[in-house]
Amino acid sequence: MSRRSITGLRRLMSVTALLLLSLAGTAPAQSREQYTLHVTMAGTGSGTISSPSGIQCGSTCFAKYARGTKVTLTATPDSGSTFQGWSGGLCSGSGDCTVMMFAGAVNVIATFNSASGRSGGASGRSGLQPIIDTLIVRKIEKGGAAGTVTSTPAGIDCGAACQATFPAGTTVTLRALAATGDFVGWSGGGCSGNANACTLTLDASSTIVTATFGAGRRLAIATE
């Protein structure tokens, strides 16, 4: 077999191997969808949350991970505080919290209380664990328009993740970005008008906000 034939055969084998890896779901992690893990600190005490990569909270309380990634969170209380436990992200108890990033953004709450025994939550309401509220974004796209809605703090990335949980009392800013057409406006959940950003405070167990995208701002804003 000639050298040119051998080179061609090697190239064909390389392409075939990459195709088989892709079909088997073992493509490189950077090609997989990314989801945000967000950690909220709650309670009357203080401490830090860490993971092998990405989360160092205090300073960095959210990070993006490829779909299917397993993330282990570890809580370390400061002097004079105790770690009371986890909530959200299917985590509970006071040991390490393991989160599987499968189907969208994940919000985890870590509660630290002062060693004096007082307890509290992120919203200031009494109880060992903070109260969790759900924010749901209903996206309507008309006339071939398309867009995304994201949130600060991280959690909503709609597109893919149109629902997220936050501690009650959290102030969330939603931002709409039209890919094609225009952003027509908001309705529900205390949001209205056609400004690209809407800020709301979560004070109910479930809040639904509708974001409408259309071919032009003359379209009527969807109502509940």
Rank of each mutant, 00 (worst) to 15 (best):
A220I: 12
M1Q: 11
S151T: 12
S46G: 15
T76C: 02
G25L: 05
A75I: 01
D182A: 09
L200A: 11
G190N: 04
E141G: 03
G45K: 11
A103H: 02
T82C: 00
T72G: 01
T180L: 05
P130H: 03
M41K: 13
G25E: 04
P52A: 01
G143C: 13
G93T: 11
I49D: 11
L177A: 15
P77T: 11
F166W: 05
A17H: 03
R217I: 14
T170M: 01
C57K: 03
A75V: 04
T212A: 10
S2D: 10
S53Y: 07
L37Q: 09
R218A: 15
S94Q: 13
G144S: 08
G104N: 05
G89A: 09
S192Y: 10
A197N: 15
T171V: 13
V39Y: 06
V39A: 07
R218P: 01
A161R: 03
I140H: 09
A103F: 04
W186H: 07
L73W: 04
S5G: 02
T171L: 05
A63H: 14
R10P: 00
G214D: 07
L90N: 15
T171S: 15
V172L: 09
S5V: 08
G117Y: 03
F166Q: 09
Q84C: 03
A122H: 10
R125L: 05
I131S: 13
V71P: 01
K142L: 15
R138V: 12
G68K: 14
L128V: 09
L20F: 06
N196A: 14
P130Y: 00
T26C: 08
T98A: 11
V172R: 07
I109D: 05
R175Q: 14
C57E: 04
M100R: 14
T40G: 02
V149Y: 03
R4I: 00
A24D: 06
G68M: 12
G216R: 07
F183N: 11
S22C: 13
G54K: 08
D96S: 14
G95D: 13
A160R: 11
T74E: 03
T134V: 06
V137Y: 10
A63C: 06
T199Y: 01
D203P: 01
A122Y: 10
I49L: 13
S116I: 07
T76Q: 12
T201L: 03
C61D: 07
C162P: 05
R4T: 07
P167H: 11
A75D: 04
I109F: 00
L9N: 08
T134F: 01
V137C: 07
S14K: 14
T201N: 09
K70D: 05
S53E: 13
Y65E: 03
L174P: 08
V15H: 08
G45I: 07
G193K: 07
W86R: 01
G80L: 03
G58K: 03
V209K: 10
G181Q: 11
G68R: 14
T199P: 06
T199W: 00
M101W: 02
T82S: 10
T111M: 00
S151H: 10
I156M: 05
L177N: 15
C61F: 00
S126D: 04
V106H: 00
A176P: 09
G188A: 09
S116Y: 05
L23R: 13
G117D: 00
S50M: 02
V149K: 06
G25A: 08
C198W: 04
H38T: 15
A29T: 12
L37I: 08
T152I: 11
A145Q: 07
G189S: 04
T72Y: 00
